[in-house]
Design a protein around this nucleic acid. Structure first.
Lengths: 226, 226
DNA sequence: AAAATAGTGTCTTTCAGACAATATTTA
DNA sequence: TAAATATTGTCTGAAAGACACTATTTT
């Protein structure tokens, strides 16, 4: 009795985040298909899942990022699956939502079909994308309090207080410097480059992410969203 | 060009957990359809999503629980969406996985089409259900360390040390009693019933979940999986 | 020199956990 | 009475945060 059934629409949407001039920005793509809802509007990058093309949903999410935003190897983690009759005018649909983080220096430029928008200035988005964005921000802020997640927003080399500033931008509040340094040190995920660099004051020691050590496991997206 | 496309299979699977005789158990359903894979095997309760019937994926998960396990109002939270070509012999599929917690005294009896199996004694399950189970356990254990999640495994009224035992069973280790009481007290989610009850020693104060207070928000499933 | 930034030492407060002490039940 | 369980008080060590002090750069 199930032989010829039709399944509901299945898509992936990706909340792409970066830090530009000390502000969190989300990447939006221009909708180009006149046969689809919100033609000409700016939305979160997303694609329909194509089983013949995408090994799994994460592969579809990477395809969405590459084709709609030109981003190739971000930190990517599944967020939540949003579903129901009402979220898309074409009918019942499910969207497997992901969020992605890219360092500012690896983020694509704003183009005619892609642009960065400051998160705090956004008040609405098509579909339920505003809800998805809010969820992603909650998740990122939450993980920031107990993991090294914001490292994926940092450039290849950075100073300790530069990293602290990134954390502060993500969390939206200040962090005691002494506490922060002890916290990062205990995570054991950074190694000094040996260089010093000045940002308008005393020179700061530069760090990079420590490669291939035990402590790095906590950087990867656990299957479990936590 | 998308007009007549077929979408991949979309299903929900639910990891149903309870505590029986101080051990975590998972609810399994007997597969009854000879046209489907693993006919006659025990698997996690799941259904195909039916857009005309299910308001959203969570509704489908509730339908799976009610029809396959006879469970009607559990704590229910979305876990992760598993997808890909390989997880089901019928082809590319996506399963929106949920986990559910029920108190032992509200759990259905083992029947011919439904039964409880001790989690620690399970070594394999059909499809990728073992992976889903592992993820659910990780999630539950993780949330146990910073929320009152295991309360949903407790009966309507319970003692402080009874609740602590539940936490210990979920986490698989002992918890210092003094620390636990301070932790629970600070969550401000319990209220004393006024009764005392003995479990083989001095009588223990009984508690219930505090109703409709600010502190209760942390009990609900936040959309955000954390 | 003044201002900005970086890095480190240390004091205080807070909290988790250990442990003791007391109390009340069952065997 | 002995054993089991419950509840509360208090001590200790670890960690967070506040704050001060020194150092090095730019303006």
């Amino acid at each position: 009795m199930n032989e010829n059934r039709t399944y509901p629409m299945l898509m992936v949407d990706v909340i792409l985040l970066t830090l530009i001039e000390r502000k969190l920005h989300v990447g939006l793509a221009l909708r180009m298909n006149p046969d689809e809802p919100f033609f000409g509007a700016w939305t979160v990058p997303g694609v329909m899942v194509r089983p013949e093309q995408d090994a799994d949903a994460e592969a579809a999410a990477r395809r969405a990022l590459l084709s709609k935003a030109g981003v190739s190897s971000p930190y990517l983690e599944q967020l939540y699956t949003f579903s129901g009759q009402l979220r898309d005018s074409r009918g019942w649909s499910a969207s497997i939502a992901y969020y992605a983080l890219v360092p500012a220096d690896a983020a694509p430029e704003t183009q005619d079909k892609f642009r960065w928008v400051e998160v705090d200035s956004l008040t609405q988005l098509p579909f339920d994308h505003m809800t998805i964005l809010q969820s992603a921000l909650e998740r990122v802020r939450s993980k920031t309090t107990y993991s090294a997640l914001p490292i994926h927003l940092a450039p290849a080399e950075f100073s300790m207080s530069g990293l602290r500033t990134i954390y502060e931008q993500v969390l939206g509040g200040s962090i005691p410097g002494r506490t922060f340094e002890r916290y990062i040190e205990q995570l054991d995920i950074l190694e000094p480059t040996g260089e010093l660099k000045s940002f308008g004051g005393a020179p700061a020691k530069m760090y990079r992410i420590k490669q291939r050590k035990g402590g790095l496991a906590q950087l990867g997206p656990s299957l479990l969203a936590r």
